[in-house]
Amino acid sequence: MSETTFKRFFGYEDAFAHPLTCGVVIGLSVLLLITPLIFLALRRFVGVSDSTYAEIWSRWRTWIWISVGLVVPILLGAAWVIAGVFALSLCCFREFARATGIFREKLIGLSAVLGLCLISFSIIDNYPRLFFATPILGIGMIAMVTIPQDRPKGFIQRVALGMMGYLFFGFSLGYLALLTIDPLYRPLILLLLVGVELNDVFAYCTGRLFGGRKLVPNTSPGKTVAGAIGAMVLTCTLTLVVGHYVMFQGTRMDQWHTLLIMGIGISGFGQFGDLLLSSIKRDIGIKDLGHVLPGHGGLLDRFDSLVIITPMYYHFLSVVLGPLGNGQAERILTGGGP
């Protein structure tokens, strides 16, 4: 393993080398420290009910865990991000499997887990071409494994559910780890995560503020058109400002139209990811996918927005900036190759 690669994997020394990383960590810490004061003020001057009060505290505690769980691996190095994304994918697939009932098909679950291992391996190996081949290798496996059991009844359903879970929560979320092949992975991942999470917050706030027409009432009764548009405007502003002044200075990304496309993408596809999970839940007829995060539901209820946007983000960056991680030694473990 070359020195650059080692540094990328385990080099926590230059965790704060990029101003965006610094800014996000400081901003997040301040935000999480200030919000309790707001809760206390609300309690004293506005008078919220006990149950609401307990609810917001539980949400706040969960946010601390989420922030620590997301930011610390990113600061520590790429190896931890890859491990973290593997665990996240595993938990998300498990939630999806338990909600749809596909978890009873142990062999399909096993194939999906093997597929997840292959995805992580391809990223550790710095072998993006293998990564891009994992969808077809994985779904081939999922389709094959139950054939020898000779029970064609329900074949399409179980294979399709297995494939869907694997593609969305294994492959799609895997792109989050694939971003680590770029030396600037810390700010790139943080920009996406912060953008997507703030987009959720913007949508909620503007939706509450303006109300009005519902977006897709059958899928998600809480979402409004005003919320969607408000989130789009605010998120685009955010990416334009951060992209121009902090993140992409002097690169091909630093043009108003590329940054605008990125903003629209993060906001639009983020919201579609949200609605994708809502549609899944509505179809099954459940409210939450799990109870891992108190106040939020399952992990998927929190990370649903990332499912569609992450691959698009990666490929958009590659198209504009040139292939990510270019010039580094490829295929660290398998050797050979250019």
């Binding site: 498990r94 009932g101 978890f103 679950g109 096993l110 179809d283 459940i286 109870h291």
Partner: peptide, 25 residues
């Protein structure tokens, strides 16, 4: 027809105690 895990709404010790418990891989 989806058949979610019967213990989908249970957590922690409640889930361990439940007769509705279902396990996976």
């Amino acid at each position: 027809e989806f058949q979610p895990a019967r213990d989908l709404n249970l957590t922690g010790i409640e889930r361990w105690r439940s007769l509705q418990r279902e396990h996976g891989l």
